[in-house]
Write a protein that binds this DNA or RNA. Sequence first.
RNA 1: CGGGGUAUAGCGCAGCCUGGUAGCGCAACUGCUUUGGGAGCAGUGGGUCGGGAGUUCGAAUCUCUCUACCCCGACCA
Length: 568
Amino acid sequence: MKTTAFHLVTRKETPQDAEIISHQLMIRTGMIRKLGAGLYTWAPLGLRVLQKVEQIIRDEMNASGALEMLMPAVQPKELWQETGRIEDFGGQLLAIKDRAERDYFFGPTHEEVITDFVRNEINSYKQLPINFYQIQTKFRDEIRPRFGVMRSREFIMKDAYSFHLTQESLEQTYQTMQQAYTNIINRIGLDFRCVLADSGAIGGSGSQEFHVIADSGEDAIMYSDSGDYAANLEKCEAVSLLHERQAPTAALNKVSTPGQKTIEDLCKFLAIDSSQTIKTLLVAGTEKPVALVVRGDHSLNEVKAANLAAVASPLRMIDDEEIKALTGCDAGSIGVKGLDTTIIVDRTVANMSDFVCGGNENDFHYTGVNWERDANFDAIEDLRDAMVGDPSPDGVGTLQVARGIEVGHIFQLGNKYSKAMNAVVLNEQGKSKAMEMGCYGMGVSRMVAAAIEQHHDDKGIIWPANIAPFSVAILPMNYQKSERVKQAADELYAKLQARGIEVILDDRKVRPGFMMSDFELLGIPHQVIIGDRSLDENQVEYRNRTDMESMKINRDTIETVLAEKIKA
RNA sequence: CGGGGUAUAGCGCAGCCUGGUAGCGCAACUGCUUUGGGAGCAGUGGGUCGGGAGUUCGAAUCUCUCUACCCCGACCA
């Protein structure tokens, strides 16, 4: 490709509304352009990268035995009524009507459609296991799209769905998918971790996420510094920090604490550490409000809380009026002593003794509070966020934290959908059985952004070799005037093309500095600079985008040198 | 959806308070010079000032209203 025949429109200035580096660089290089909130056009340059990611995914999925197909993006509402998921997805579903006023959704995911397909196509256990996948545009009406294609409303996803007679078979395919995902992200060339995850609106028993490690990641990943344990913070088990409960040593004491509302204020006022206090949080329950209690220096894990049977999902803190009605005090003074509602405490809290809590009366707290003697709870649960320095839940090592971008998520769904939609097969005994199901998602467009987040410097993108839009850039100095430079550049261009190497030659009439800055921004891995100066010595200059060290290479050997570097 | 903000040329912004012929930088186009680190000079094109309504002799500017977009919180590939 020659630049004058390509669509190359770069910008020197960083766009005003782009917050994270991948978004900025994708706009500056002209890979994408915004059409509306969370809606992006992929320009030819961006599409080249997107298609490389897509092809790597396709290769590995095919190698794993999965079968590619393509389902409609538009789905009849009736399918979603069968599984009752309209509520789960809420406002994220984009609803549309056809000319006859029939209701449809633009698909945010395809469990319903594939299950409908499979219940009609698959009747016998002999046809199982089977794993279908597609690479397709999805739409989710995100409350707040941001970060360019990282969290857009319309995006490209690879989604796969496997069907099985038994749980064992499901687990086998799940493992295969885990391996395929590992292969995919390795081939793309990104640093990632596979972590335990909450399964959210998709449902099912077990799930893991694949996170590309990057400081701008929206998720916190907890991992053991010396073991294999790794989990999304939302899911990460938090162990009790106290092995057993000590016997009370202090007497219960009601103290006046005028105006002390936050834990921080209270600790200063009483000259104690926040780990000696507890936080009592009142949330809406399925029947009555529930008190969730974590230690003063801990934070409530909202995903864990919402997953509790007694707690309403999604999680909602009750408002000031409801608090007043229940406790007689305001939010800053709630405590467990004499509190008349369901009380669920965190594991650590259950083992605390001689602690401090609110007095359920404004401007009063209790010190020296002890369980059983002074107050009781109804259940012990894992309620808090794990923290750096906690013991790893599997007993090996200590937890550390990293930021991650979720690019993949795999689930064991079990028979949630097959039961709801009556997707059954006959087993060996001729008996009808609901199929076991797995599903496996991967964000294709998000992967491109994640790659940039992980691979850039202050000059621009540094593409990993396997997804670079071009492998080699030929940068001729004074291509327009110097016949000798033009000849040398055109010759190398033709030779590389003949070898099937993806090469871009910059034949624009621009000054050298402009050209070099442009290609640093674009991040093409291998760059060859051809100028009269080096041609005098029958040489050209080679530069690698990663280290930017330049070296002179004989003009006659540059072609084979490049071919070897690209193969390596 | 709640809170905050913005909307003027392709991009980044000024002008608005105090109403009077729409401006700057970058980008684009033409010419000349320059050619190994985002060049210089001269010139050119491009805007119903987000939409609608109102006040006024006169509205980018004042008032009302709608819309879009961005940021902060709850969701997810």
